[in-house]
Amino acid sequence: MIYAQILAGGKGTRMGHVKMPKQFLTLADKPILIHTVEKFVLESRFAAILIVCPADWLSHTKEIVHRYIHDDRVKVVTGGAERNETLMQGINYLQTHYDLTDDDVVITHDAVRPFITQRIIADNITAALQYPAVDTVVPAIDTIVQGATESVTTIPVRESMYQGQTPQSFNIQALIKAYDKLTTDQKATLSDSCKICLLAGETVHLVRGENFNFKITTPYDLKVATALVETRE
Protein backbone atom coordinates (compact mmCIF):
# COMPACT_ATOMS: atom_id res chain seq x y z
CA MET A 1 0.00 0.00 0.00
CA ILE A 2 0.99 3.61 -0.51
CA TYR A 3 0.51 6.19 2.23
CA ALA A 4 1.08 9.94 2.44
CA GLN A 5 2.16 11.97 5.43
CA ILE A 6 1.89 15.76 5.50
CA LEU A 7 4.30 17.11 8.13
CA ALA A 8 2.52 20.05 9.76
CA GLY A 9 4.28 20.05 13.11
CA GLY A 10 6.40 23.20 12.74
CA LYS A 11 6.00 26.31 14.88
CA GLY A 12 7.08 28.77 12.17
CA THR A 13 9.43 30.90 14.27
CA ARG A 14 11.06 32.48 11.18
CA MET A 15 7.70 33.84 10.03
CA GLY A 16 7.89 36.59 12.65
CA HIS A 17 5.15 37.68 15.04
CA VAL A 18 2.16 35.73 13.79
CA LYS A 19 -0.71 34.33 15.84
CA MET A 20 -0.47 30.75 14.55
CA PRO A 21 2.02 28.30 13.00
CA LYS A 22 2.79 29.16 9.37
CA GLN A 23 0.96 26.12 7.93
CA PHE A 24 -2.32 27.65 9.11
CA LEU A 25 -1.72 31.12 7.68
CA THR A 26 -3.90 32.15 4.78
CA LEU A 27 -2.60 31.86 1.23
CA ALA A 28 -5.03 33.45 -1.19
CA ASP A 29 -8.39 32.30 0.22
CA LYS A 30 -7.49 29.31 2.42
CA PRO A 31 -4.82 27.96 4.79
CA ILE A 32 -1.46 26.97 3.28
CA LEU A 33 -1.96 23.46 4.66
CA ILE A 34 -5.18 23.01 2.69
CA HIS A 35 -3.52 23.98 -0.60
CA THR A 36 -0.97 21.22 0.05
CA VAL A 37 -3.46 18.55 1.11
CA GLU A 38 -5.58 19.21 -1.98
CA LYS A 39 -2.67 18.16 -4.19
CA PHE A 40 -2.37 14.82 -2.37
CA VAL A 41 -6.09 14.10 -2.46
CA LEU A 42 -5.85 14.09 -6.27
CA GLU A 43 -3.60 10.99 -6.14
CA SER A 44 -5.96 8.02 -6.02
CA ARG A 45 -3.26 5.49 -5.05
CA PHE A 46 -2.95 6.75 -1.48
CA ALA A 47 -4.65 4.43 1.00
CA ALA A 48 -4.45 7.12 3.70
CA ILE A 49 -3.23 10.70 3.89
CA LEU A 50 -2.03 11.67 7.37
CA ILE A 51 -1.71 15.26 8.56
CA VAL A 52 0.66 15.26 11.53
CA CYS A 53 0.29 18.47 13.54
CA PRO A 54 1.17 19.96 16.96
CA ALA A 55 -0.97 18.68 19.84
CA ASP A 56 -2.04 22.25 20.70
CA TRP A 57 -3.41 22.69 17.16
CA LEU A 58 -5.09 19.32 16.75
CA SER A 59 -8.65 20.67 17.09
CA HIS A 60 -7.93 23.59 14.76
CA THR A 61 -6.44 21.26 12.14
CA LYS A 62 -9.44 18.95 12.29
CA GLU A 63 -11.76 21.93 11.95
CA ILE A 64 -10.17 23.34 8.80
CA VAL A 65 -9.80 19.89 7.24
CA HIS A 66 -13.50 19.25 7.85
CA ARG A 67 -14.30 22.62 6.28
CA TYR A 68 -12.25 22.26 3.10
CA ILE A 69 -11.46 18.58 2.50
CA HIS A 70 -14.08 15.91 1.87
CA ASP A 71 -12.06 12.72 1.63
CA ASP A 72 -12.23 9.91 4.19
CA ARG A 73 -8.59 9.00 3.55
CA VAL A 74 -7.41 12.17 5.31
CA LYS A 75 -6.58 11.62 9.00
CA VAL A 76 -5.31 14.20 11.52
CA VAL A 77 -2.64 12.88 13.91
CA THR A 78 -0.66 14.44 16.76
CA GLY A 79 3.03 15.02 15.98
CA GLY A 80 6.14 15.24 18.12
CA ALA A 81 8.51 17.89 19.45
CA GLU A 82 10.65 18.05 16.28
CA ARG A 83 10.54 16.99 12.64
CA ASN A 84 11.75 13.41 12.81
CA GLU A 85 9.79 12.69 15.98
CA THR A 86 6.74 13.97 14.10
CA LEU A 87 7.60 11.69 11.17
CA MET A 88 7.86 8.65 13.44
CA GLN A 89 4.60 9.55 15.21
CA GLY A 90 2.92 9.26 11.83
CA ILE A 91 4.63 5.94 11.20
CA ASN A 92 3.44 4.70 14.60
CA TYR A 93 -0.11 5.64 13.63
CA LEU A 94 0.17 3.62 10.42
CA GLN A 95 1.52 0.63 12.36
CA THR A 96 -1.38 0.82 14.81
CA HIS A 97 -4.24 1.37 12.37
CA TYR A 98 -3.20 -0.50 9.22
CA ASP A 99 -1.84 -3.96 8.45
CA LEU A 100 1.54 -2.93 7.08
CA THR A 101 3.60 -5.20 4.86
CA ASP A 102 7.26 -5.17 3.82
CA ASP A 103 6.32 -3.50 0.52
CA ASP A 104 4.37 -0.53 1.92
CA VAL A 105 5.73 2.98 1.31
CA VAL A 106 5.09 6.45 2.68
CA ILE A 107 5.42 9.74 0.80
CA THR A 108 6.21 12.52 3.31
CA HIS A 109 5.88 16.21 2.47
CA ASP A 110 6.17 19.60 4.16
CA ALA A 111 2.78 21.19 4.80
CA VAL A 112 4.23 24.54 3.72
CA ARG A 113 5.26 23.45 0.21
CA PRO A 114 1.87 24.02 -1.47
CA PHE A 115 3.14 24.10 -5.06
CA ILE A 116 4.00 20.43 -5.33
CA THR A 117 2.91 18.88 -8.62
CA GLN A 118 1.27 15.58 -9.49
CA ARG A 119 4.41 14.71 -11.47
CA ILE A 120 6.61 15.06 -8.38
CA ILE A 121 4.21 12.96 -6.30
CA ALA A 122 4.00 10.25 -8.98
CA ASP A 123 7.80 10.15 -9.42
CA ASN A 124 8.22 9.73 -5.65
CA ILE A 125 5.74 6.85 -5.61
CA THR A 126 7.50 5.11 -8.50
CA ALA A 127 10.94 5.52 -6.89
CA ALA A 128 9.80 4.57 -3.37
CA LEU A 129 8.46 1.26 -4.70
CA GLN A 130 11.98 0.49 -5.97
CA TYR A 131 14.35 2.06 -3.41
CA PRO A 132 14.39 2.18 0.42
CA ALA A 133 14.60 6.00 0.51
CA VAL A 134 13.94 8.82 -1.94
CA ASP A 135 14.80 12.53 -1.78
CA THR A 136 13.37 15.26 -4.01
CA VAL A 137 16.03 17.74 -5.11
CA VAL A 138 16.87 20.52 -7.57
CA PRO A 139 20.39 21.29 -8.81
CA ALA A 140 22.12 24.06 -6.88
CA ILE A 141 22.12 27.28 -8.93
CA ASP A 142 24.56 29.21 -6.77
CA THR A 143 27.98 28.03 -5.65
CA ILE A 144 27.76 26.39 -2.23
CA VAL A 145 30.28 27.70 0.30
CA GLN A 146 30.96 25.83 3.53
CA GLY A 147 32.37 27.91 6.34
CA ALA A 148 33.08 28.16 10.04
CA THR A 149 32.24 31.44 11.79
CA GLU A 150 33.74 34.06 9.46
CA SER A 151 35.97 32.01 7.14
CA VAL A 152 35.43 29.63 4.23
CA THR A 153 36.51 26.04 4.88
CA THR A 154 35.66 24.51 1.50
CA ILE A 155 33.80 25.18 -1.75
CA PRO A 156 32.28 21.96 -3.13
CA VAL A 157 31.94 21.39 -6.87
CA ARG A 158 28.59 22.95 -7.75
CA GLU A 159 27.71 20.29 -10.34
CA SER A 160 27.43 17.69 -7.59
CA MET A 161 25.43 19.91 -5.22
CA TYR A 162 21.64 19.84 -4.89
CA GLN A 163 19.06 21.67 -2.80
CA GLY A 164 16.82 19.31 -0.89
CA GLN A 165 13.05 19.64 -1.05
CA THR A 166 10.20 17.30 -0.20
CA PRO A 167 8.61 14.83 -0.70
CA GLN A 168 10.98 12.46 1.00
CA SER A 169 9.70 8.95 0.55
CA PHE A 170 10.48 5.62 2.19
CA ASN A 171 9.83 1.96 2.33
CA ILE A 172 8.16 2.00 5.75
CA GLN A 173 9.88 -1.06 7.18
CA ALA A 174 13.30 0.14 5.95
CA LEU A 175 12.70 3.51 7.63
CA ILE A 176 11.70 1.90 10.93
CA LYS A 177 14.77 -0.37 10.92
CA ALA A 178 17.07 2.54 10.03
CA TYR A 179 15.67 4.75 12.80
CA ASP A 180 15.99 1.99 15.38
CA LYS A 181 19.68 1.54 14.45
CA LEU A 182 20.56 5.14 15.30
CA THR A 183 22.11 6.11 18.60
CA THR A 184 20.71 8.92 20.72
CA ASP A 185 23.58 11.15 19.60
CA GLN A 186 22.92 10.39 15.94
CA LYS A 187 19.22 11.18 16.34
CA ALA A 188 20.21 14.54 17.84
CA THR A 189 22.09 15.44 14.63
CA LEU A 190 19.20 14.75 12.29
CA SER A 191 18.28 17.82 10.23
CA ASP A 192 16.68 15.84 7.44
CA SER A 193 14.59 12.68 7.32
CA CYS A 194 16.62 11.02 4.56
CA LYS A 195 19.66 11.29 6.83
CA ILE A 196 18.01 8.58 8.96
CA CYS A 197 18.57 6.13 6.13
CA LEU A 198 21.99 7.50 5.15
CA LEU A 199 23.34 7.04 8.67
CA ALA A 200 22.01 3.49 8.64
CA GLY A 201 23.88 2.75 5.40
CA GLU A 202 20.89 2.81 3.05
CA THR A 203 21.02 4.24 -0.47
CA VAL A 204 18.91 7.38 -1.04
CA HIS A 205 17.61 7.76 -4.59
CA LEU A 206 17.15 11.22 -6.12
CA VAL A 207 13.98 12.51 -7.78
CA ARG A 208 13.85 15.83 -9.64
CA GLY A 209 11.86 18.57 -7.95
CA GLU A 210 10.95 22.04 -9.21
CA ASN A 211 12.23 25.46 -8.20
CA PHE A 212 8.66 26.58 -7.52
CA ASN A 213 8.21 23.72 -5.02
CA PHE A 214 9.63 26.01 -2.35
CA LYS A 215 9.01 26.07 1.37
CA ILE A 216 7.08 29.03 2.80
CA THR A 217 9.26 29.95 5.77
CA THR A 218 9.49 33.76 5.95
CA PRO A 219 7.13 36.70 5.31
CA TYR A 220 8.93 37.20 1.98
CA ASP A 221 8.16 33.61 0.97
CA LEU A 222 4.50 34.16 1.76
CA LYS A 223 4.42 37.27 -0.45
CA VAL A 224 6.02 35.32 -3.31
CA ALA A 225 3.56 32.45 -2.84
CA THR A 226 0.60 34.86 -2.83
CA ALA A 227 1.80 36.46 -6.06
CA LEU A 228 2.28 33.04 -7.64
CA VAL A 229 -1.25 31.92 -6.73
CA GLU A 230 -2.72 35.15 -8.04
CA THR A 231 -0.78 34.84 -11.31
CA ARG A 232 -1.95 31.26 -11.84
CA GLU A 233 -5.54 32.19 -11.14
Rank of each mutant, 00 (worst) to 15 (best):
Ala47Arg: 08
Val138Asn: 09
Tyr3Asp: 14
Pro132Ala: 04
Ile69Glu: 10
Tyr220Asp: 04
Asp99Gln: 08
Gln146Gly: 10
Ala55Ser: 11
Gln130Arg: 10
Arg119Val: 07
Lys19Asn: 15
Arg158Thr: 15
Trp57His: 12
Asp104Ile: 14
Val134Tyr: 07
Thr78Gly: 04
Pro156Ala: 09
Thr117Val: 15
Val76Lys: 00
Thr26Gly: 00
Thr226Glu: 15
Val204Thr: 12
Leu87Lys: 02
Thr36Arg: 00
Gln165Gly: 13
Asp135Thr: 10
His66Ser: 09
Ser44Tyr: 08
Val207Pro: 14
Ala48Ile: 02
Ala200Asp: 02
Ile116Glu: 04
Leu42Tyr: 00
Ala178Gly: 06
Thr126Leu: 12
Gln186Lys: 03
Asp142Val: 09
Ala133Glu: 13
Val76Trp: 06
Thr101Arg: 06
Thr143His: 07
Gly80Pro: 00
Leu87Val: 02
Ala47Asp: 11
Met15Leu: 07
Lys11His: 10
Glu230Pro: 04
Pro156Cys: 03
Leu7Phe: 09
Tyr98Cys: 02
Ile155Phe: 01
Ile172Asp: 11
Thr13Ala: 07
Lys75Ile: 14
Gln130Met: 14
Ser191Phe: 01
Arg83Glu: 06
Ala200Gln: 03
Thr101Asp: 00
Ile116Pro: 11
Gly12Val: 05
Val65Ser: 02
Cys197Met: 13
Ile116Tyr: 05
Lys19Tyr: 09
Ala28Thr: 00
Thr154Ile: 06
Glu38Cys: 01
Val74Cys: 01
Ala48Val: 07
Ala122Asn: 09
Phe214Met: 10
Pro219Phe: 10
Trp57Ile: 03
Ala127Phe: 09
Thr203Arg: 07
Val76Thr: 07
Met161Tyr: 04
Ala200Ser: 13
Asp180Arg: 05
Ile107Gly: 10
Ala4Leu: 10
Ala47Pro: 00
Leu42Asp: 12
Thr117Lys: 08
Arg73Pro: 14
Pro114Met: 13
Ala111Gln: 06
Tyr68Lys: 07
Ile125Gln: 10
Gln95Asp: 01
